[in-house]
Amino acid sequence: MNCKRIPSPGMREGQDGGETFRLMKITINSVEQNFSAGTKLIELVNRVREANRDNPVLKSLIEKTGKDHITFSHNRRIVKPSEYGSIELEEGDEVRWMLPYAGGS
């Protein structure tokens, strides 16, 4: 799950519209990815939500409970939705996101 301004792997800085920015490595669901410094968790949350906008199970859950129940953990701690906006990601952070159980056996 990539956020904005993602250059090729291994780069430590990049450019976007003439603006130079610093990069950092974040592990998302066990895979290391590049993010621009200053990325907040809420940006990742919004990307995940957008990518799953058409998911029928999430739609059903939102109808039933008012929430999508996607769960995020940051450095091995589950994050409360109220904290998404206040967490700024840092080099070496580990983020996991998990869609709610949709059935299965």
Partner: peptide, 17 residues
């Protein structure tokens, strides 16, 4: 799909409905 399982380490991460 039916359990929302992903295996990103082996390349299954973003999946569209």
């Amino acid at each position: 799909w039916v359990a929302h399982v992903r295996l990103p380490e082996w390349g299954i991460d973003e999946v569209k409905t």
